[in-house]
Computed example of a mutant assay.
Amino acid sequence: MTARPALEIAVTSPAGARAARENGADRVELCSALELGGLTPSAALVEAVAAQGLPVQVLVRCRPGDFVHDAQEIALMAAEVRSVIASGAAGVVIGALTADGALDTVAVARLAEAARGAGRPVDVTLHRAVDQSADPVATAALLAPLGLTRVLTSGGAPAAADGLETIAAMVAAAPGVQVMAGGGVRLADIPALLSAGVASVHLSAKTRAPRRPGGTWVPLGAGGASAEQDTHFVTDPEVVAGARRALESAG
Rank of each mutant, 00 (worst) to 15 (best):
D104T: 06
V124A: 01
P145W: 13
D162A: 15
V201T: 09
G24I: 02
A227F: 11
S133N: 04
S226P: 00
E47C: 00
A89C: 03
V92E: 06
M77E: 14
S204W: 10
R244S: 05
V81C: 14
T231V: 01
L193M: 08
R61V: 08
Q57T: 00
S32E: 13
R82L: 00
S195Y: 00
A141S: 14
A20S: 08
V124M: 13
A50H: 07
V60E: 10
L143T: 07
R128S: 09
S195T: 14
V122A: 02
V240Y: 12
G224D: 12
D236S: 03
G101N: 09
A188D: 15
A25I: 04
P55A: 05
G197R: 09
G156K: 04
V218I: 15
R82S: 14
H232Y: 14
V185S: 12
H202S: 07
P14R: 06
G163M: 07
A144D: 15
A112I: 01
A205Q: 07
A243M: 07
S195I: 00
C31N: 15
V92L: 03
G147H: 11
V28D: 11
Q72F: 05
V46H: 07
A246S: 14
V81N: 06
G37V: 06
L142G: 03
R21P: 04
L34A: 07
P64K: 00
S154H: 07
D123K: 09
V28P: 07
L39Q: 13
Q229N: 12
H232I: 10
G91P: 03
V218K: 03
A161E: 15
S133D: 04
L54G: 08
A196V: 07
G95Y: 04
L194E: 11
V201F: 08
T216M: 13
A78H: 00
L54V: 11
A161G: 14
K206I: 04
V84R: 05
K206D: 08
M180L: 15
R150E: 12
D104E: 11
A138E: 12
A33D: 14
V92S: 01
V46I: 02
P219C: 04
P5V: 01
P237W: 07
R27M: 04
S87H: 12
Q72C: 01
T149Y: 09
P213I: 03
A169K: 04
D236P: 05
A118V: 01
A225S: 11
V201A: 07
V58F: 12
G197S: 11
V179H: 07
Q178S: 14
D123A: 14
A19Y: 05
Q178M: 13
G224M: 04
I9V: 15
V81S: 06
A50W: 11
D189E: 08
A243H: 10
V239F: 00
A157S: 13
V130K: 03
L164N: 09
A43I: 09
A6Q: 14
S226W: 06
P191T: 09
V60G: 01
H127K: 04
V108K: 03
P213E: 13
Q178V: 14
A144W: 13
V240N: 10
L164E: 12
E238V: 03
T105E: 15
G197Y: 10
A160W: 09
R208P: 15
V234K: 02
Q132D: 15
A196I: 05
G119K: 03
R21F: 10
G53F: 12
